[in-house]
């Protein structure tokens, strides 16, 4: 399981790396850093608080480059906070980056539509990115041990509030970005940030 996770993550990262040329490394690197910082933000929900994940947003902003970006952010989390070890790095990257890429392909085309559609698409993107992540966790646990089905359903239900909040925040963030810096978002031809460097 750990090995297949690592292999898949390596494949995804390889594709992501192919997609970024050296001109974009500074950009991806700094966005990866922002992703890391965003995951430190704790948002209150009832008496507790959750920290943001934002993998949906990263997917929207980076496309396939989300793979290496998330891998790097996770590696840094490991080094700074000792979250997880080396062996789970691959699986964790899959859990966060694969949904990011899937959501990018599902929802990026919708961003060119009207305001309502954008709001819905962005909400869906944030929501599904976490949902798919939880589903992958569930699948991973099921492959390890069939009896884990209960745990897996638990994982998905436990993340329901997280999904809703991620959805809301992703939606608001995307609306904000559309007003402030529309060139950061993918355009309808599906190429993120092509225009960003030439805008000035």
């Amino acid at each position: 399981m750990l090995i297949s996770g690592a292999v898949l993550a390596a494949a995804g990262t390889a594709v992501g790396l192919k997609k970024i040329d050296y001109d974009r490394i500074a950009r991806v690197g700094i966005l990866s850093a922002s992703f890391f910082v965003a995951s430190l933000i704790h948002v209150p929900i009832g008496p507790a608080s959750i920290h943001l994940i934002m993998n949906g947003l990263v997917g929207l902003l980076l496309g396939w480059a989300a793979f290496p970006a998330i891998l790097v952010a996770l590696l840094m989390q490991g080094v700074f906070f000792q979250y997880g070890g080396i062996t789970t790095l691959g699986v964790n990257t899959m859990i966060m980056a694969l949904p990011a890429v899937i959501c990018y392909h599902l929802f990026a085309p919708l961003l060119a539509k009207g305001r309502k559609a954008v709001l819905a698409a962005a909400f869906g993107c944030g929501f599904c990115a976490v949902l798919l992540g939880a589903v992958i966790v569930g699948l991973a646990l099921m492959f390890t041990e069939e009896k884990f089905l209960e745990v897996a359903t638990l994982v998905v239900t436990a993340h329901l509030p997280v999904m809703i909040i991620e959805g809301l925040i992703t939606a608001f963030t995307v609306v904000f970005l559309q007003k402030v810096q529309p060139s950061m978002l993918p355009t309808f031809d599906g190429s993120p940030q092509k225009t960003a460097n030439s805008q000035k």
Binding site: R27, I30, L31, S34, A38, I41, F172, Q181, A196, N197
Partner: peptide, 20 residues
Amino acid sequence: YRTYAYLVGMIFVRAAERAD
């Protein structure tokens, strides 16, 4: 949530500008 979203959005905007 809206405030946090704008905050995150601002971080990303500034990050992108800095990256340029």
